[in-house]
Amino acid sequence: MIRPSSLIFAAALGALAGCATTSAPRSGAAVAPYRDSIDLAGRIAINYSRDGKRESLSGKFTWRQSKANTDVSLISPTGQTVAVINVTPSSATLKQSGKEARTAPDLDSLTTQTLGWTLPVSGLRDWLQGYATAVDGKRFVATPANDSVVTRDGWKLDYVSWQDDAAAVPQPKRIDVTRIALGQQVDEMAIRIVIDPVAQ
């Protein structure tokens, strides 16, 4: 049986499929160019508040992204697929074993249907590659020397570790994401993502 918290887990990771922007990075940073098509896998842990109670959950994910679509599979710690999420330019769909698929015109609508409120994350498609739009509207590019930013939509990103921080073009390994309000961390949601090394 899928717990209600699994829906939150699914919707939270589904938010990883937000739209990316491709404006130029700040100068002086040696970073990999943004890629429209990537395949990633990793682990995710989410801490959140629901009805005044602190909750947490964790699991694994696989991520396949093309220029137009994003497919995400969520896997429980025991290895079972909890949900499969597909985001296209015209719809977002959440499928869970034994349940009717949920579809909405966009990810925000889907999370509103699933959670009853809109999950305010739309940038993780960028964030997984070390890119973000900063609070001042400028393009942020993460590097080991420039590893933290508050985004325009109110999230603090900390790039905690790198696949190889001595590489000429480091790739993110661990990203901590916390919600920010009036410059202070708030308790509604925090996400920790660890990206597995990509096989060569």
Rank of each mutant, 00 (worst) to 15 (best):
S37I: 08
G98S: 13
P89E: 12
G14K: 03
G28P: 02
S161M: 11
A12H: 03
D136W: 15
W155G: 01
G154N: 11
A167Y: 15
Y34L: 09
L115S: 03
R139E: 08
P172N: 08
D176G: 04
I38D: 04
G28R: 01
R35E: 15
V84K: 15
A11H: 01
Y131P: 11
N146Q: 10
T21C: 12
F9T: 00
I193S: 00
S90K: 11
S148A: 03
T21D: 12
E100A: 15
D196Y: 01
S49F: 00
P120V: 08
K95W: 02
A101S: 12
S56R: 10
S90L: 07
E188T: 10
L57Q: 12
Q113C: 01
I85K: 05
S23I: 13
Q185F: 05
T114V: 12
S58N: 13
D165P: 09
T112Y: 00
D158L: 13
S56V: 06
D147A: 15
V177R: 04
W63V: 02
K95G: 03
T62S: 13
P172Q: 04
E100D: 12
S90Y: 12
S58V: 12
G18F: 05
R26L: 12
T78Y: 04
N69Y: 10
T81W: 08
L94N: 03
G18V: 09
A101G: 03
Y159F: 13
S6M: 11
S37W: 06
L7A: 01
Q163D: 11
K67F: 15
D158H: 14
I180G: 03
A166C: 05
S97A: 14
N146M: 05
I38T: 09
E100T: 14
A32R: 11
D36H: 14
L40E: 04
T114H: 02
V121G: 04
R35F: 04
A104H: 03
R152W: 08
M189V: 09
S56C: 05
T70Y: 06
V82A: 03
G123C: 13
